[in-house]
Design a protein around this nucleic acid. Structure first.
Length: 204
DNA sequence: ATCAAGATTACCT
DNA sequence: GGTAATCTTGATA
């Protein structure tokens, strides 16, 4: 009989390891945002790594600015940015202080608070099948569904507003590795990781 | 002060 | 498949 693992918050030590170690372990973990007395939650199904030291696509590649300064902290902080005049995207800062590394959360599978997510995305509760799959299948969609905005910039992920829950490690065969999406620089780095056959992954 | 780009999305054919 | 929308940020002057 397999022991049921309790849902435990990921610790500071999880995040302060190297970017590429953390990014491989993030698929399958659970993103949680406190919402009043309840919670919004989703299983992380797609992520990308960004490393300012060697990666021209990273916001930290050209040094510290007001926007990216949280990425130069040690791991365990939330980096939120605004783009294309419309969308927020959220990231998990990793590594040691001054590394400038983070993981973009590209897609999650909704687990709890789905009604609230539906309201945030579509301003209604009853969704078509297509709309359900479109709820959190992209970085901007995740933030809209969870109500994540610049006010969440810099949050400590060991706190209780936004955090991740641990889950058993996935097998290597369950994770697909590809080049990243939607960037024009350093396009060949194989730093996108997603859960095989999961319908909420943004693109095959 | 001005300007171009952008870790996207929704909607179109 | 392609592209308009939309505005913050960072770079350049």
């Amino acid at each position: 009989m397999k022991k049921l693992q309790p849902f435990k918050k990921l610790s500071k030590q999880f995040y302060t390891r190297n970017l590429l170690t953390v990014v491989r372990e993030l698929p399958g973990k659970i993103l949680v945002k406190k919402y009043g007395k309840t919670f919004l939650a989703g299983k992380i199904v797609e992520v990308e790594a960004y490393d300012g030291m060697i990666d021209k696509a990273a916001h930290t590649f050209t040094g510290k600015t007001k926007r990216n300064e949280i990425m130069f902290n040690d791991g365990g902080y939330f980096y939120v940015y605004f783009t294309y005049g419309a969308h927020f995207c959220c990231n998990i800062v990793t590594g040691k202080k001054d590394h400038g590394t983070a993981v973009l959360i590209r897609a999650v599978e909704p687990l709890a608070g789905i009604k609230k997510m539906s309201l945030n995305r579509y301003n209604k509760i009853t969704l078509t099948e297509k709309e359900k799959l479109n709820l959190t299948s992209g970085p901007g969609k995740v933030c809209e569904a969870f109500g994540i905005t610049k006010e969440h910039y810099g949050l400590d992920l060991t706190g209780d507003k936004i955090f991740l829950l641990d889950r058993p490690k996935l097998k290597k065969s369950e994770i697909v590795v590809t080049k990243r999406i939607g960037i024009k620089k350093s396009v060949d780095l194989p730093w996108r990781f997603y859960i095989k056959d999961n319908p909420y992954v943004s693109r095959k």
